[in-house]
Design a protein around this nucleic acid. Sequence first.
DNA 1: GATAAAACATGATATAAGTCATATTTAGGA
DNA 2: TCCTAAATATGACTTATATCATGTTTTATC
Lengths: 144, 144
Amino acid sequence: MFTNSSKYALKAVLYLALHSDENKKIMVKDLCERINVPKAYLSKLLQDLARHEVVSSSKGPKGGFYLNEQNLTMSVLDIVHIIDGRKKTESCLLSLEDCSRHKPCPLHNLVSSSRNEMLNSLKDKTVKDLSLDLKHKKAFLPLA
Amino acid sequence: MFTNSSKYALKAVLYLALHSDENKKIMVKDLCERINVPKAYLSKLLQDLARHEVVSSSKGPKGGFYLNEQNLTMSVLDIVHIIDGRKKTESCLLSLEDCSRHKPCPLHNLVSSSRNEMLNSLKDKTVKDLSLDLKHKKAFLPLA
DNA sequence: GATAAAACATGATATAAGTCATATTTAGGA
DNA sequence: TCCTAAATATGACTTATATCATGTTTTATC
Ligand code: FES
Ligand code: FES
């Protein structure tokens, strides 16, 4: 479904949502152990996310990554789009050029409604929403 | 969503469903032009599909690929599984180990229903179904 | 049987995704 | 001001996906 990079990014953001804020920054060194992602790889992802204002960061001693209020308003789909690009989610299932109701490919009618439903869920759900689910034990984030 | 290989495979099978039968076999050489897929690559895919009885083939002069009645009963999901493996469709969206209702990851509740709906559609839809849609102009297969 | 036309099998190359390593910049604290 | 701890930037390496190429087997036809 998603690429490895997206999964790592989402796990990282969720961990930050739960355990960080402006006064409690988290270093890659620590984060990578908690969410079980290779350190150097995670660094790259976080830098990419920082550039797109999905996470906040500060350098130097006492530095690290964290989420501010604005960061929390990002949606799951935003993050996936930043890391994986839009192609995977937006293009025709058979990669045909003009995907539309007018000229649907054989899979279009079959899956478009459930697919759209799924994508809309991802678009509407913010990082904050997810973190609340986790806090209220409606969802879990094992480290495996 | 799917991998390139799967898309190619599906396009090939659909073309065969519409234009071939036991008495009208189609050679890779021709097929690859019709569906706009690199010849050597398509060969490999077709051989894989033949091994798994998704398509039929015969060697030698007058040989080629075609679909018989049994081939037509394969589902879209069967084909995707053969080419891409089951991991992409069956594993947790965050690749966590024990994906379940009991311990759902943050994305599970959000998308599992629409995701299952989509996968079930793909599981239930046979190649024959799709080819009928095409015949009845309920769907189209441009060559792009 | 010899020939030729097709699928089949195998392996080589190219591109992209994932991973690792190292040097540079920034900022806090002595 | 200088040292150190952190992110940042860049690039090398590895693995998987996608593509290409070449030789081997099967089979209809002469
Ligand atoms: S035309 Fe293929 S998914 Fe819409
Ligand atoms: S636990 Fe992640 S999708 Fe089910």
